[in-house]
Amino acid sequence: MTSELIIAIIVTVVGASTPILIAALGELVVEKSGVLNLGVEGMMLVGAITAFVVLFTTGNHYLAILCAAGAGVATSLIFGFLTLSLSANQTATGLALTIFGTGFSALAGQGYSARPVTLMGPLFPADLAAHPIWRVLFGYSALVYFSFAMVIGVWWFLKKTRAGLILRAVGENDLSAHSIGYSVVGVRYAAVAFGGAMAGIAGACFPLLLTPQWAERMTAGRGWIAVALVVFASWRPFRLLAGAYLFGLVMTMELYAKASGGPLSVIPAELWAAMPYLATVVVLVLISLRRDASSNAPACLGRPFLPTN
């Protein structure tokens, strides 16, 4: 394998991993506050169509990302209102949100399907971004660097800030947090909105980063991978980074192995295709062996907050 090919593979892996990473980081914060939002896939689709329409209308990629985040927040607040204000079941509401997002994006996308847009260009100047070697570090659009920054940002927020401590307290023991005066519902609203913004941006990655068009259901299940990754990473941002890239790597290598028609086929494509599932099994086994990892799940995850009971 030449170094050129390795760099080309890395570039493709980064593209495939970024939307999963961004969506999963959002869901991680939501779950840390004790809320399980299964509507990531739906929010991503709403973000994707919003980004597409804004980009198609204005041609401005940054505005498209911003509007996708806003649309994600708006969609997540439907979930927030039902589960936090009305204490509806989070699992059912999350699933309904995915159905809603899928249908809404399809409806909003009517008439936008035969319209091409342009991909978001690299953040750095062409000297660096198109350099045969350095493009591996500098050849990406702002969304990719944003995803890395958010890994550090989420880790720092949860571990090092007072607000992060409060959010974790709300997720671990809502009644205690409530009894010392924190607004459990308020904190959770904020977390859900953050998750919505991140899912919206993750959706924007599809027309902006991967394939410059709108196609119904274009996220094709990656929102579910993001939800699974949070458990896979046992609610830790840096493991989430590793997990997202592991999934991105195996998804991409399957295709490179198949397209190589020989040289790369030392590992059969079927094995690459099976790898995410094998990796999941291995990680789950490791987690169950190390008891501390499984106890990292927020204690109040998925439980409605009903202080009057």
């Binding site: 493709t12 495939a16 599809f206 274009m218 990656r222 998804m251 397209a259």
Partner: peptide, 26 residues
């Protein structure tokens, strides 16, 4: 020569795009 790449789905644009990238890179 022609190299078939089966992606096990009829509609996953991002995967189709990545398959095309994998081909052109090689």
């Amino acid at each position: 020569t022609i190299t078939p790449v089966y992606i096990s789905t009829w509609n996953d644009p991002a995967k189709e795009a990545d398959a095309a990238r994998a081909m052109i890179d090689q």
